[in-house]
């Protein structure tokens, strides 16, 4: 009996987590003028309007470019650091690990203020560069955590075999280690991209006037009540940020199978 109760409770908890989001998706197909109930019919007109809304398209481009650059830089830094921590015995590695995840131990608001004020002092004003710096520093800990967790699982003796068979360390890295690491690298990059794509807390501090990312655009649109367009934009974002990692995971599994992992 107790077990049935827990099962029912869990069902309610999952409903709580997903029902509001499902309603966003549902309402984005609402034919009604207003982004609300009752539903008056099925329509994709809000998606069409979305595709013609210049401000939203611009926000989308900004988010995409920002996310991609963030992922590139953050993953490069994170993979190198993870390699050092997993593959070498580094003195003070505990302290280094703590330093590397420090950006998520500091409240994001505080990080945002500190970075804004310091870089402004260094004559870097609110700009795309400031946004990029902010997103890199904020996503780096997540990349380090994800990549490190997967690197540990790669067996060292495969590399040692390559070395003992006459491959140079550089050859070994590019022909053995890197292909084995690829799923970890991809996972780290995707993680950084989605976190950057979703971020609003720091972004509102760092973005220059007139530049919007998708989340700040949604936030600005919310000021004048909820519209069906916001729901449609929400649906597009959900598809992107949920679909992309799922696709990534599928590709990673495929790669892992091919390389015999």
């Amino acid at each position: 009996m107790g077990w049935q109760l827990i099962r029912f409770w869990t069902l309610l908890v999952y409903l709580f987590m997903f029902l509001p989001v499902a309603v966003v998706v549902l309402l984005s197909f609402n034919a009604s003028q207003f982004g609300s109930f009752p539903m008056t019919g099925f329509s994709i007109r809000w998606f069409v309007e979305l595709a013609q809304n210049e401000a939203i398209l611009r926000a989308f481009r900004t988010s995409m470019i920002l996310g991609a650059l963030t992922a590139l830089i953050s993953t490069t830094l994170g993979v190198l650091a993870s390699l050092a921590l997993v593959r070498y015995r580094v003195p003070g590695s505990n302290l280094i690990s703590t330093l590397l995840i420090a950006p998520i131990l500091v409240p994001e608001v505080v990080l945002a203020v500190a970075l804004l004020l310091f870089l402004n002092f260094m004559s870097i004003n609110k700009s795309f560069a400031l946004l990029l710096f902010g997103h890199v520093i904020f996503t780096l800990p997540f990349v380090v955590l994800v990549v490190q967790a997967r690197l540990v699982a790669i067996r060292r003796d495969i590399e040692e075999a390559a070395l003992s068979l006459g491959a140079s360390p550089v050859q070994t890295f590019f022909e053995v280690t890197l292909p084995l690491m690829l799923p970890a690298v991809l996972a780290g990059g995707l993680f950084a991209f989605t976190i950057s794509f979703d971020d609003i807390t720091g972004t509102l501090f760092w973005k220059p006037g007139g530049v919007e990312t998708v989340p700040t655009q949604i936030f600005a649109m919310l000021r004048n009540s909820i519209s069906p367009e916001i729901n449609a934009l929400g649906t597009v974002m959900i598809v992107l940020t949920v679909g992309l990692p799922l696709l990534g995971a599928a590709i990673a599994r495929q790669l892992a199978r091919k390389s015999g992992g």
Partner: peptide, 11 residues
């Protein structure tokens, strides 16, 4: 994976 702002405004 679902944006914080969307989950918040969904209410």
């Amino acid at each position: 994976w679902i944006s914080y702002i969307i989950r918040t405004m969904s209410w």
